[in-house]
Nucleic acid binder design. Structure first.
Lengths: 225, 225
DNA sequence: CGGGCCGATGAGAGACCTCTCATCTTGCTC
DNA sequence: GAGCAAGATGAGAGGTCTCTCATCGGCCCG
């Protein structure tokens, strides 16, 4: 339940998606045109298709329609062009299960992927992430640190969520930037540093370790205690 | 699939929830203490329980625990006190399916209720509301009017959503206020008027009709055309 | 130990967003 | 038609959020 077909012709995005999925435990395969997308999708080798609408060869709508015409129920998440609600509606009516509009943050795509690939689609989604004294309420965008409740802004929350989903792991600024800010954010910015600082201030400096030259790591509160 | 048990001892909130649910097509029954909540829940007459944690007689946690001990899988949405993540976590671990923290906007509760009571829990949730030339993308908080894409703020979007979910129906300022702003907002404010104006400006004045002395009504674009 | 990169930090600009308030306009009632 | 109530509107205060930029500090290497 983790083989994902990514049909996307823009290198930058394809690589961004593939890397991210891989580091989250999935096995992505990339194809860059509509014909291959359809062929691969029909092999039955995949559990999910992430499908760009603007593909060369055969556009995403057509790929999707043909897949559905063949009675194939493979879950499909479409990537639609910037701000095109029309595309979105057309895609959903054409049989897509979900969609993302570009440019998107990786964490958002990941949430949709998780939703579609859960073992038991009936089970309620976890709404609280909890790691050693630090809990994030995914709904209310609030955190609690040893019983104290802290409000986080949207950005702060997204960053904290990324750390909590990869506890103990070193995350590079580049990774954090693309996960939280999206793939087309200025790579020269020190915005990650700034937001790490905000989290340290609000959630406890000892939880966010600097790994010089590499990035940052979220350490379990229990280690620090 | 629409009988809802509401266990809430604060009159104001119970009535707010019951009225709202009724106007959305559900059949709510209100009980105001834990003992009754448990008894009614166990009758099998209900499809969903909205359960306040701070009930007299028997607190919500206990009610929930006993329901689950009796192998009753009735879906439960708990209402937790302001900002208490601890309560939330305890509730979810104790077998709740979902939660709301007070004070909440009615539309949010409604979204959760809809989710739990869908005929087919597998079916993807609708993510676009569409009515006569006006489409709302529930995900990106964007609207499109006859192919033009418009960004809406959070409040604007919530208000527009409320209108689109009750097309053709006159909604009083009071209703709109409690749906969109929550039940403890200053009733003397003209904030609804102001936001209706914003929507008129962004989405077309002709779609939002003033019904003097009553409130506002969303009219289908096709009527106006 | 000196230089230099890497990271930490403070300050603040700019862009919303939400809501209030005062004023203007409209339409209803008598 | 006068007067009043209901609604429309403009302006702006106050807040939050995001991001940039300049500076400070400290670690590592030669």
């Amino acid at each position: 339940m983790n083989r994902i077909l990514v049909a996307e012709d823009e290198d930058r995005i394809a690589s961004f998606v593939a890397k991210g999925l891989r580091s989250s435990g999935y096995s992505p395969t990339v194809v860059t045109d509509g014909i291959s997308a359809f062929d691969y999708a029909m092999t039955g080798e995949f559990d999910l298709l992430v499908l760009d609408i603007g593909l060369p060869g055969m556009d995403g709508f057509t790929v999707l329609r043909r897949i559905r015409q063949a009675r194939n129920t493979l879950p499909v998440i479409i990537l639609t062009a910037r701000q095109s609600i029309t595309d979105t509606v057309a895609g959903l009516e054409g049989g897509a299960d979900d969609y993302m509009s570009k440019p998107f943050r990786f964490e958002e795509l990941l949430a949709r992927v998780r939703l579609r690939l859960r073992d038991d689609p009936h089970a309620p989604e976890p709404t609280v992430l909890d790691h050693g004294g630090l809990a994030l309420d995914l709904r209310s965008r609030r955190a609690s640190v040893d019983d104290r409740t802290v409000d986080l802004s949207a950005r702060e929350f997204a960053l904290a969520e990324t750390f909590l989903r990869h506890p103990g792991q070193v995350l590079s600024r580049e990774q954090l930037l693309s996960h939280v800010w999206g793939y087309d954010f200025d790579p020269g910015s020190n915005i990650v540093d700034v937001y790490v600082r905000y989290l340290r201030r609000k959630l406890g400096a000892e939880r966010f370790e600097t790994v010089r030259g590499m990035g940052y790591r979220f350490v379990d509160g229990s280690e620090a205690g």
